[in-house]
Simulated assay, not measured.
Amino acid sequence: MVSEDWYTINDIEKLDTPVLVVYPARVKKNIDTAIGMIDNVARLRPHVKTHKCAEVTRLMLQAGITKFKCATIAEAEMLGMCKAPDVLLAYQPIGPKLDRFIRLISLYPNTKFSCLVDNLPASVGISEAAIKKEIKVPVYIDLNVGQNRTGIKLGDVALALYVNCQALSGIEIVGLHAYDGHIHQPDLAERTEECDKCFEKVVKLQSEIVAMGYPKPVIVAGGLPTFPIHAKRKEIECSPGTFVYWDKGYQTSFAEQNFLPAALVVTRVISLPNETTLCLDLGHKSIAAERELKTRVYFINATKLEAVGQSEEHLVVEAGKDHKYKTGDVIYGMPYHVCPTVALYERAITIEDNKMSGEWKNIARDRKITI
């Protein structure tokens, strides 16, 4: 049975706000839950964009996870520093980013780094950079399965890119990457139907590649919303990310996934501007602000508060008449989107047994660590 006051920090008077707090026991539980949703831990390739943290990465390594996905060079370097065996940069490195990526491969030789490509000129650039260093870079063909963000269109053009890349001596095609981030229907049956429809085209491409005599390419597919669907496919790798901390947005939309909130923002009432409103120290710089105002943060211990205004350092909320709030009152908030919220904080304070126990640096929130 989950304790209703699991989030309470008994020595909160020592903690300045706004602050990001993380509950390690819950993080470990979420890692175990993700592993339990798939038949083989070797098929898990978690995305580290949510936590950006070496301590969380090490917990995953200790749990038997050896493959990871990331979006930035800093995240990739953090994984190299943790001696992660297999790291996919889910990004196509162009210009200075390619130079940094090649340097990363040299600096962390015990980690197998790979990246995405979705066009021939970029593939040629990566190949030429690799040849200069006398290495071969593993790559995945990035497929556009409907999100229309990155990736090459499925069909003949994708097959042609695969064939053309095979002729480039500086790269080695490992597989196909299919991120279906546009699929997020709350109803699991509807989500599954749409996911299966998209995935059929990926399997068709894989079959065409094999029919041409090439080795069967690995498929890396999905994110968190389609994780329960792809987890049932016996051969593909799955890339959930948000599960490790969870958030209110996913908790609301994907009720079939039993992850626990493991990261919160803590704020205080700093002013009472009038008889019905409060001002909290939770501005744009402290909580992800890309969503509509009322769905940026959910207050666990103050569920009736309604956000009515926000600026850089302040969040104004409506409390109603005759409320009992006072300046200094502590409020615990669950972000609706935890990934960009984490990126706003240099560190997270760890909470164990309802008390502060240390801190985890979000070292990959910066664009650069050393490279």
Rank of each mutant, 00 (worst) to 15 (best):
D156G: 06
V157C: 12
A158C: 12
A158L: 05
L159N: 03
A160V: 12
L161D: 01
L161V: 03
L161Y: 01
V163C: 03
N164M: 15
N164Y: 05
Q166A: 07
A167N: 13
A167I: 09
A167S: 14
L168E: 02
L168Y: 03
L168S: 06
L168T: 04
S169L: 11
S169W: 05
I171T: 00
I171L: 02
E172F: 09
I173H: 01
G175E: 00
Y179E: 06
D180N: 09
H182D: 08
H182N: 11
H182R: 08
I183C: 04
H184K: 13
P186S: 13
D187L: 10
A189G: 10
A189M: 14
R191F: 03
R191C: 06
R191S: 05
T192F: 09
T192K: 14
E193R: 14
E194P: 01
E194F: 08
D196Q: 15
D196S: 15
F199P: 00
F199T: 01
V202A: 08
V202S: 06
V203W: 05
L205H: 03
L205C: 05
Q206S: 10
Q206A: 07
Q206M: 06
Q206N: 11
Q206K: 12
E208Y: 09
E208R: 14
M212T: 09
Y214A: 08
Y214I: 09
P215A: 09
P215G: 08
P215R: 05
P215T: 08
K216F: 04
K216Y: 03
P217C: 04
I219K: 02
V220I: 12
V220W: 04
V220F: 09
A221C: 12
A221H: 00
G222K: 02
G223T: 05
G223E: 05
G223N: 12
L224N: 07
L224C: 12
P225W: 02
P228E: 04
H230N: 08
A231S: 12
A231P: 01
A231C: 02
K232I: 07
R233Y: 13
R233I: 14
K234S: 12
K234N: 06
K234L: 09
I236A: 00
E237H: 13
C238R: 06
P240I: 02
G241E: 00
T242N: 09
T242I: 11
F243W: 06
Y245W: 13
W246P: 00
W246M: 08
K248Q: 14
K248E: 13
G249A: 07
G249K: 02
Y250T: 13
Y250Q: 11
Y250P: 02
T252G: 09
S253F: 05
F254H: 11
F254I: 07
A255M: 10
A255Q: 14
E256W: 11
E256M: 06
Q257R: 08
N258Y: 12
N258W: 08
N258S: 15
N258V: 14
